[in-house]
Design a protein around this nucleic acid. Structure first.
Lengths: 117, 117
DNA sequence: CGATAATGATACGGCCCCGTAACGATCGGG
DNA sequence: CCCGATCGTTACGGGGCCGTATCATTATCG
């Protein structure tokens, strides 16, 4: 799997997927939220607020607020760590997994189009 | 140029680039703004407010406001159409071209990493 | 114990974006 | 010439996200 990609192809891919996202109407997550969501679903648990903040290079309130809004959307959930009750463990949800999967489908579909063009 | 890509690679690519964008600090454009910017720089001129709105499936004020904020960042500029003074022609700028190029570099670099992994 | 550190959440003031509705400027057909 | 259509912009009310500073809760160490 080489996954070589030219500059113009990269831009077209980025544009097509963003157009899809705009038209999808649904969530319209911010860049930060997207990075958080994908980190939660691609990296090994457990995930904490502090850990994510350090990982992304942002402050803790950014993570807290992102979890609030994504929690309302059902994309993630939170649970107190029973062994250290200061910690909060961020958990995945079915809806979140579906959203991530949907994004993967979008990207791969657009990439395939570019490849055959 | 096949540009085949697996689901997990697509997600990793999307995540890595978003992490880069978060850390870049700079603009942090919204999904809509990104779609608008790339449409302006990838499709043939002339571009108008109405045309972009139709192209993205959003209302005109969305385009006007996006052009306002991206204009402040120097990424695009506007000019009245002299032949039909109701129209506004959206023009590219040097800074905008550089920003687009930078994004292309990010995507291709991350894609290359995934390919060799 | 008590003091200190660490965690996540919250308050605050500021800024940006949204959609709907209305607006002024301009064009064009009758 | 005038009136309707079209263009882009602006006003409005509502909501979200930002960073800084502060908070309550919990753990830890002396």
């Amino acid at each position: 799997m080489v996954l070589e990609i030219k500059l113009t192809q990269a831009l077209r891919l980025w544009r097509e997927v963003h157009l899809d996202l705009v038209r999808d109407t649904q969530a319209d997550l911010s860049v930060r939220q997207t990075a958080i969501l994908l980190t939660i679903y691609l990296e090994l648990p457990p995930h904490t607020v502090r850990g994510l903040a350090a990982r992304l290079g942002v402050t803790k309130p950014v993570i807290t607020r992102a979890l609030d809004s994504m929690g309302k959307l059902g994309l993630v959930s939170r649970k107190r760590d029973e062994y250290d009750k200061r910690n909060v463990v961020i958990q995945r949800t079915v809806a979140g997994a579906l959203a991530v999967e949907h994004l993967a489908d979008l990207v791969t579909a657009r990439a395939r189009e570019l490849g055959s063009a």
